[in-house]
């Protein structure tokens, strides 16, 4: 089978439009995940051990089961209970929840990365807990969290093709549709691969720069 450039250019507009949807899905999913992650992290730091335990187990459960199965669960189970969710809503909810568990770990790691002595110093200076968080802990934790947060943005982007399976009209869905319409799979699937490469390579490069910058700012420069 030969590559057909005329066909490639014919389907290019639809592919680009779908790329927009892919980026939109990744972006919205990420924003939800950022918030969900924060809630799940705080849920493990409450004064109530039973709450911390339950949240911890929920996070473990979500982290160790496949996103694809979760996607189907949310999409098909909600209507069973009389809740109508569109494909987009189910997708965003699932992505937000799934990656929220990962981000909660990133946040937790970052907070634990701030040395205990910093807390002790703040106690000694009689700072309130809120003030300690705002002025001392969070400014130090944020740079630690940054590379991990960036990683999961790219991670979500690379998992968006799964959304095709429940009918979100992103890149993979569009490629499937084009294949079904024209019986040509070579160009659509290869183009999807290329588009992913074009977006994720610079993103990965940017992430490495960010990591290096953060390491440098923290004085951990490697010689």
């Amino acid at each position: 089978m030969e590559w057909r450039w005329d066909f490639t250019f014919e389907i290019l507009p639809r592919m680009l439009w779908a790329t927009g949807n892919t980026l939109l899905a990744a972006g919205i999913g990420y924003l939800i995940a950022l918030v969900v992650g924060l809630i799940l992290m705080l849920g493990q730091r409450t004064p109530y051990r039973i709450v911390n335990f339950i949240v911890r187990e929920v996070v473990e459960f979500i982290r160790s089961t496949p996103l694809l199965v979760q996607l189907f669960f949310v999409f098909f189970v909600a209507p069973q209970f009389g809740i109508k969710l569109t494909a987009w809503t189910s997708a965003m909810l699932t992505i937000g929840l799934h990656f929220g568990t990962y981000l909660s770990e990133v946040y937790r790691g970052a907070l634990e990365g701030v040395p205990k002595a910093q807390w002790e110093a703040c106690r000694a200076l009689n700072f309130s807990t809120a003030y300690t968080y705002r002025r001392v802990v969070l400014p130090q934790a944020f740079p630690i969290a940054l590379p991990g947060m960036g990683n999961y943005l790219v991670g979500i982007f690379k998992d968006t093709p799964l959304l095709a399976t429940i009918g979100v009209a992103e890149l993979m869905h569009t490629a499937n549709a084009l294949g079904a319409e024209t019986y040509r799979y070579l160009e659509p699937y290869t183009m999807v691969g290329f588009i992913f490469l074009i977006i994720s390579l610079p993103a990965a490069m940017g992430l490495r720069r960010l990591e290096a910058a953060v390491a440098k700012a923290q004085g951990k420069v490697k010689h």
Binding site: K158, T160, P161, A164, Y185, Y189, T190, F196
Partner: peptide, 19 residues
């Protein structure tokens, strides 16, 4: 790492046979 797993899976399953 730069292309998505599902894309690679479909490519191997649907496009490789064409070759």
């Amino acid at each position: 790492r730069g292309t998505s797993l599902l894309v690679q899976l479909y490519w191997i399953y649907y496009v490789l046979p064409l070759m």
